[in-house]
Amino acid sequence: MFFDHFYYWITVILFVIGLYTVMSRSNLIKKMIGLSLFQISVFLFYITMGKIEGGTAPIIIDQPDVVYSNPLPHVLILTAIVVGVATTALGLALVVRIKEAFDTIDEEEILQMEETK
């Protein structure tokens, strides 16, 4: 029972830490870091479901009775990783410009500035 779902639980713990970091931290870079953690946890979730006991990587080799793990989740997560880094790049570019425009990357300070303007 414990090992049956161990991988999934680790996924959930990472997920919660990531989500909490995004929501509770007011530093914009810390938010991006939390977002990355949050996305990584979902990658693990997908890859876990493709795993097969005693399996090997889905690269065909000429041997009888080889069990291959499922390639489809791998394909999906390759795409998701790319999407993740694209989002990170865009987010960080915005952070750089926010720093220049507001001279801070603290969400609360920015909110104060926006209100007073």
Binding site: I40, G50, G55, S69, P73, V82
Partner: peptide, 14 residues
């Protein structure tokens, strides 16, 4: 977990 392609990408990107 047998996802070598994904591991490669995660190491290179993440």
């Amino acid at each position: 977990l047998d996802a070598v392609d994904v591991a490669f990408t995660e190491a290179a990107v993440g």
